[in-house]
């Protein structure tokens, strides 16, 4: 009896532990199901949207940026680079294929999208269409005949 009674107590602790771990990872990573996806920041300026994506250690030729049907897709692969004769003892970095898709608004100029890559960060600039950019109209003064 005494050994049986300790069992549920320990499994309860395990459950509690599991729950706490999940809570921590959800709070800190925001994306529990897709923790390995490249991290992004997306911000909007008056005339453009800017998407910055962390892709450390990825080669330029292994990155694809596509726009189709108003969806911007950043995809590619991070290839592992191991030194010959060395053994990996700790690995927290992910070396996998990655894919992020972002639905763009209708007010963008898809023809003029620009992408640059440096220091392991991909920066995609999506200009807004001219119709969507708020313009201040200068008021002309009526020329009066005098």
């Amino acid at each position: 009896m005494s050994t049986n009674s300790t069992k549920p107590r320990f499994s309860l602790l395990d459950e509690l532990d599991k729950g706490l771990n999940q809570l921590v990872s959800e709070v800190l990573q925001h994306e529990p199901r897709n923790a390995d996806a490249p991290r992004l920041s997306v911000y909007e300026l008056d005339d453009r949207y800017v998407i910055e994506c962390d892709l450390p250690g990825v080669q330029l030729e292994d990155i694809n940026v596509n726009v189709e049907d108003g969806v911007l897709e950043i995809s590619g692969e991070r290839k592992p680079c191991s030194t010959e004769g060395a053994k990996v003892t700790v690995n927290e970095r992910s070396f996998t294929e990655f894919n992020r898709r972002l639905q763009l608004g209708k007010n963008i100029n898809g023809e003029a999208i620009d992408a640059e890559f440096g220091d392991g960060v991909l920066k995609v600039t999506v200009p807004k269409s001219t119709a969507a950019v708020a313009r201040k109209i200068a008021i002309r003064k009526v020329e009066t005949e005098s």
Partner: peptide
Amino acid sequence: IPEGASVVFNNR
């Protein structure tokens, strides 16, 4: 992120 920009999403 430049000043004046409105952040849509950021987990970096």
